Computed example of a mutant assay.
Amino acid sequence: MSWLLGIAIFLATVLGMEGFAYVMHRWVMHGPGWFLHASHHRPRTGNWELNDLYAVIFAVPSIVLLLGGVQLGWWVGWAWIGAGIAAYGAIYFGFHDVIVHRRIATRYLPKSNYMKRIVQAHRLHHAVETKHGTVSFGFLWAPRPELLKAELKRRDRAGVRSPRITTAVD
């Protein structure tokens, strides 16, 4: 296989993973997989949460495809696909865990309109505590925040987290 075709397969896989991630997030994580994902919608107490098991689950196909395409004599395209899945996972980790949730300390502040948009969309996703009524399920693409806010309002803010109230101590 030519390098050019391999890179095209790799890039197509990275892009296709956004659609796969949307489907998994919306209909699996906020559906039957909520028992793991619910931990991600609650304050974390420690370095890990049950939701982190999804990273392990989604890494398995990437590892198998890389191994098969490189070492087991499968079609070499499987290795490019496995690498695309792994690259999406790395991008997801950098955006979601480092930039949005700050699980690793960083001084990064989103400055581009694109980064501000996806960070805000993800925060609006987390405004809802329940598995139902949530908006914005993508990771690298998100609707405009105004549309997401309007959708939450249309739903009468069902499941939206109550504002935190702080009181001054005299």
Results as ranks from 00 to 15, higher is better:
1 M>G: 14
5 L>N: 05
7 I>K: 06
8 A>H: 10
9 I>G: 10
12 A>V: 04
13 T>N: 07
13 T>R: 06
15 L>P: 09
17 M>A: 10
17 M>F: 08
18 E>M: 02
19 G>C: 06
21 A>K: 10
24 M>Q: 12
25 H>R: 04
26 R>D: 04
26 R>N: 05
27 W>Y: 15
29 M>F: 11
30 H>L: 08
31 G>F: 09
33 G>W: 09
33 G>V: 02
33 G>Y: 09
35 F>S: 08
36 L>Y: 00
37 H>N: 01
37 H>P: 01
37 H>T: 02
40 H>R: 08
45 T>M: 12
46 G>I: 01
47 N>I: 09
47 N>G: 15
48 W>H: 13
51 N>D: 15
52 D>G: 08
54 Y>N: 11
55 A>K: 03
56 V>D: 05
60 V>I: 06
61 P>F: 02
63 I>A: 12
68 G>N: 12
69 G>D: 14
71 Q>V: 03
72 L>P: 03
73 G>M: 05
73 G>E: 07
74 W>P: 01
74 W>D: 05
75 W>Q: 15
76 V>P: 13
78 W>Q: 10
81 I>D: 05
81 I>Y: 03
82 G>I: 07
83 A>C: 14
84 G>P: 02
85 I>P: 00
85 I>Y: 03
86 A>M: 10
86 A>K: 05
86 A>F: 02
87 A>P: 02
88 Y>R: 03
89 G>C: 07
91 I>L: 15
95 F>E: 13
95 F>W: 15
95 F>K: 15
96 H>V: 04
96 H>C: 10
97 D>L: 11
97 D>S: 14
97 D>G: 10
100 V>W: 07
101 H>A: 12
103 R>H: 13
104 I>D: 13
109 L>W: 12
110 P>M: 02
110 P>I: 01
111 K>D: 15
112 S>M: 11
112 S>I: 08
112 S>F: 04
113 N>D: 15
113 N>R: 13
114 Y>W: 14
115 M>K: 10
117 R>I: 07
118 I>D: 11
118 I>Y: 06
118 I>S: 13
118 I>A: 09
119 V>K: 03
121 A>D: 03
123 R>I: 00
123 R>W: 04
124 L>P: 06
124 L>V: 06
126 H>K: 06
127 A>V: 00
128 V>Y: 02
129 E>K: 10
133 G>K: 07
134 T>W: 00
134 T>P: 06
138 G>P: 05
139 F>V: 13
139 F>K: 08
140 L>C: 15
141 W>T: 12
142 A>I: 08
144 R>Q: 15
144 R>T: 10
149 K>L: 14
149 K>I: 13
152 L>P: 04
153 K>W: 06
155 R>D: 07
155 R>P: 04
158 A>K: 13
159 G>L: 02
159 G>W: 00
159 G>N: 03
160 V>T: 02
165 I>Y: 06
165 I>N: 08
166 T>V: 13
167 T>V: 11
169 V>E: 15
170 D>A: 14
